[in-house]
Every structure is written in structure tokens, then in C-alpha cells.
Design a protein around this nucleic acid. Sequence first.
DNA 1: ATTCCTACTGACAATTTTTGTCACTCACCT
DNA 2: AGGTGAGTGACAAAAATTGTCAGTAGGAAT
Lengths: 228, 228
Amino acid sequence: MTKSERLFNLVTLLSSRRTAITAESIADVMEVSVRTVYRDIQSLQSANISIEGEPGVGYLLGKRNHLPPLMFKTQEALALLLGSKMVQAFTDPQLAKSAQSAEEKILSVLPERQKISLEQQPYRIPLLDSDNHFRNTHLILRQACENKLKVKALYKDGRDRTTERILWPLGVIGWFGKWTLLAYCELRQSYRNFRFDRFAQIDVLEEEFFASEECSLEHYLASIPKDC
Amino acid sequence: MTKSERLFNLVTLLSSRRTAITAESIADVMEVSVRTVYRDIQSLQSANISIEGEPGVGYLLGKRNHLPPLMFKTQEALALLLGSKMVQAFTDPQLAKSAQSAEEKILSVLPERQKISLEQQPYRIPLLDSDNHFRNTHLILRQACENKLKVKALYKDGRDRTTERILWPLGVIGWFGKWTLLAYCELRQSYRNFRFDRFAQIDVLEEEFFASEECSLEHYLASIPKDC
DNA sequence: ATTCCTACTGACAATTTTTGTCACTCACCT
DNA sequence: AGGTGAGTGACAAAAATTGTCAGTAGGAAT
């Protein structure tokens, strides 16, 4: 990656974010040294692109939106389309529809030669009818998460004991090969994980729950080591 | 004026004009040689900024950048970003990078309020270090597929017998939870599936193979019932 | 059919930039 | 007081950039 490419990418990166990003993170993404990032920022500023930097916080693109033209490289398009296929196969029917229409929009702006090379890509993600049950679980839980509605679930734990619980669904974690609901459990009065394949039944309740500082997806994730 | 400054200025210059401008005029304004202008244009194009040139006329900024603003509905963006995360977590590091930069491009064109609602979406796909071995397998096999290079593999079958085979890698199938290489096996003289977790070793050979009507991903997939 | 005009490409060597590293300073927050 | 992160200066090695020259190609006007 040449310097100029990097500069254009940097503008894109900055305009893709709402929050500030540190020079170190940038260096990480761009695979250059931190020193180079400072120099890049300086180059951009002297090319009349306003970037605000604050010690202890990071960089933020100035408000007056410089519009960088959106075009995907072949491999970027490939990654998006492959991702779209995964969403279609591994999540719920509603999201699948959205993935498909997004796919169409992307394809419609790609030049012919890119479409051709995309056809030769080796990945195939089959849509299995047998996964319909999972897809339904996805739909129910995603909507419950988004609308912050409590759910009543019959859940079978590792030792085959089935319990009924009231859950506050916070997030859905996708490990490769298994989906897990992350929720606050009223029964246990704390965060718990629930594997999708162990739900015997799920009913969305009318009742809303309210995520707070001490009860939210971020709070839970922050209490565990790894990244999101 | 450094090259990068010149490139930004060139974009500004081009986007300020409705009529084409010749390379020579540009060279004049920028105070560089005409040859350099051609190289600059190429740099911009390889940074995915579409510029159209016509002999006898000059250069014009691609219409694509101005006219159809590729817009996504919130849920379409959600589907694409979720897919991108899956690609990052479940495939190889190279595709992961492409997914990430595609993500940035999408985010950079979304209005603020959409970005905010995307931040509240419940799905999280963790990137596990323990999957590095798989990711490496992905990289090797994807590239072998794309370049149509034979591979020599040590493979352990269902009954724990390890065999060495020469394979013509045709495609990679992603079932949820397991990846499978689809290849023509020289040992068995026919198509075979190989689960990623059963490869003991994979070496890409120098030798190319040639897919034909009777030996290709399409041909194999057509011979099985399901869709892709 | 010939001649402009202009986009493009390749090669080469001199020049200029870019890069990482190291060793700092400064400002802010807890 | 210690941690974090922006920002600077200097230097040598590595890499990109540049102009020059020599050519190809395609359209349009003559």
C-alpha cells in the first residue's frame, strides 16, 4: 500500500467513525508505525482536510463532510457478498431479505469485469431447510433484543434439567457453529449465556425491560476479557 | 507539492469541473510533466476513484461518484455489517481485511442517525485467536482455488486413516459450524469432500489443474440436488 | 488517406520521499 | 505520581517518484 492509497483510506476510515480513534489503532489497521500515522495526519491537514486530534482521545474528522467516492475493490465486494450469503444462511428470514437486497444494490454498481471475477470465487454457503427452526429463533430473539422486551423461555441446561426463566435479552453472540443468547436472567439475578439449541420454547412478553449502566450488553462484555 | 497533495488537489480539480480536461492542462496547473499526470490518474484509479479518460477529449470524474448515491436502508446496512463480521471471524485474514475496509466504506456514507442505530444492534461475532489455524487453512485453500493450483494433502478420514492425496481444489462450502473443501481427488479419480478439521497438512503445488465441463465446481454442484 | 490531438505504456537512472526506530516533550485524566 | 496519547526531531536504509525518451492506439478533422 503506497502512501497516497493509505491517505485516501485514512479519510474513509475517519469518516466511517463517529467516535475518535487513536493513532495507535490507525497504525494497527494500516500496518504502519505510529510515527507514520502522525506524518499521514499532517499530510492530510496540509492538503486541507480538517482532522481534529486530542491527546488522550484520538482523531476525529472535521464536520464539513468531504465526500469520498464509494467504490469497492473486487475483494471488498467479494467479502461483502460472502458475508451476505452467511447472513442469509445463518440468521433469520427478515435479515436474509435485507442481505439480499443489499447484495443487489452492490452488484448494480459494480462494473462488469468485477462481476465476472466474483462469479469465479470458490465459496458457497448453502441454505438448508433444516435450519428453519434456528432461523425462527433468531428472528424472535433479535426482535426481542431490539425492542427490549422480556422473554419467557424454557431452557434445558447441560445436565438436562429444564427450567422456566424470565430473560432480558441483551445480545446474540455468534461463535462459528453455535449461537448464544446473552441475557440477564431474573431467576439467577445475573448475566447468563443460553445456547440456541437448548431452548425448548421462547415467548416474547409484552413487558419491557430497561438496560442500565449495570445491566447492558456493553457492561457484560466489558466484564469479560475478549473483544466483541 | 508532494504527490499525495497533488492527488487530493486533482480530485478537487476534477470534481469542480463539468467539462473534460486534458492531461496537458493538468500538468500545467500542477507544474509536473504530462507523464506524471498519467501516473497520478492511475494512482487515483487504483485507489478506486473512477476517472474516465477519452483520447482527444481529456479526463472527467466518473459519473458513478456523483449520480447514484449508493444508499442502504438501516437493516440492509445491518445485514452487510453483520456479514462482514462473520467473514472476519470465520474466514482468512486477507478477506478479513477486505471485509473491514468495505465496512468502513459503507459506514462512511451512512448518515449519523443510521450509525447510531447500528451501534445498538444485538449481534456480536467474536474473533477468537484459537481459530487462527482454521483461518490459515482458509487462506491456503482459497488461494489454491483461485489460482487453480493442485494441492498435496494429508487427510484423516472418518475411520482415522490418514492418506496422502493430490487434490484439485474447486470450492469451499460453508455449513454453519463446519467448512468443507470440495475437490477432485486424483487418488479416487472423482469428486470428494474434505472437512477442514481433518486436514493434517496442506501444501500448495506449483502445478496447475484445468477445470473442464466435466470437472468443475458447477458440474459437481449440479450433480447434487441442493442449491448453492 | 493523412495528419492532428490526446490518451496511454514501458524502461531507466537520478532524485526525492517515505519509513521505522529511538529518544524525547507536553497536556490531560484518574 | 503514573498512565495515556498527541506531537517533534534526527538519521540511515529502503522505496517511491520523477522526467526523459521512445513508442502504440484511437478518434476526428481535413
